[in-house]
Computed example of a mutant assay.
Amino acid sequence: MLVLLPPSETKADGGLGSPLDLDALSYPELGPARRKLSAALVELAADLPGSLAALELSPRQAAEVQRNAELFDSPTMPALSRYTGVLYDALDVPGLTKAELARAHQRLAVASALFGLVAAGDPIPAYRLSGGSVLPGIGGLRGLWRSELEPVLATADDLVVDLRSGAYAALAKVPHAITVRVLSEDGAGRRKAVSHHNKAHKGRLARALAATRSEPKSAAGVVTVARRAGLVVEHTGQQCLDLVVPA
């Protein structure tokens, strides 16, 4: 099973790992695209106004540009610890047991605007780049990543659970993946899509899939694992699940 997570704009500071080694990352087929994009991002960081504009940052976020400037010099930490925010708070990596963390490293991967896809344990530095960014000399990231990522994901495990957000799902299609919608249900049974807390609920599902001793082989298996974790998940289509939460 492979669970695809979205990244986060926010990243944890610091790290104890050696500086970035692109050749040490999983999915080595993505190496040429990673090198091209990393070099462009470091070069852009020398132009603060240009970086702020391209990355859609305010002057108060100039430290994010400095992170990009130090991309190959700053320390690294495992991807699953580097990314922060609502989904990763719900995933609660520090609360996983040693065995659960080992399973998480085997099963979870993070979509990345900069690296394409990284395994949960891959050592990465802090950086700033979004799926919708347009970089000088590169253009939109979809044009760069789609031809590189789709062949890699096409050969992924038989069961892929896609929890990516829209901007990152657009970088590469995974036709055989199971997708998950988060819906709220009121007392009258009416349902609507959840936007604000969507990531938190997907984080809880990711935690359940990472921690379970069993290895789901189908959408029905994912539903079973989710329900054991106290989540309400329904198999609504051949490749679609609904995660239902109270309104």
Rank of each mutant, 00 (worst) to 15 (best):
P246H: 11
D92H: 10
A172L: 10
A62F: 10
L159A: 05
V3N: 01
D89K: 15
G140P: 11
A206W: 01
S195W: 03
T97K: 11
E148G: 08
I124W: 04
G139C: 10
A69T: 05
Q239M: 08
T224W: 01
H197R: 11
L135C: 12
L44D: 00
A226D: 03
S133L: 08
A226N: 07
A79S: 15
V65T: 10
T179W: 03
Q61P: 03
R128E: 02
L231P: 11
V194G: 12
L205I: 10
P6T: 04
E29Q: 11
G203T: 04
L135T: 06
P75D: 05
D158E: 14
T84G: 12
S112M: 07
L108E: 02
L114Q: 01
G85A: 08
S81P: 06
I124M: 06
L4D: 00
P125Y: 04
T76Y: 02
L44H: 04
L135P: 06
A226G: 11
S18G: 14
G121Y: 05
L209C: 06
R146V: 12
R228M: 04
L129A: 11
F115Y: 14
L231Y: 07
S51L: 08
A12D: 08
A156F: 09
G121S: 15
T179C: 05
G137Y: 12
Y83F: 15
L243Q: 01
D13T: 14
V245Q: 03
A193N: 12
A169E: 09
Q61F: 05
V174T: 10
T212P: 01
A172F: 08
K217C: 14
A33W: 02
L87K: 03
A62L: 11
K217Q: 14
V93M: 04
D89S: 15
R142V: 12
V65E: 01
S38H: 09
E9P: 10
H176D: 13
D186C: 09
S195R: 14
Y27V: 05
P19R: 02
P78N: 08
R142P: 05
V225G: 00
L114C: 06
Y88M: 03
H196S: 03
N198D: 13
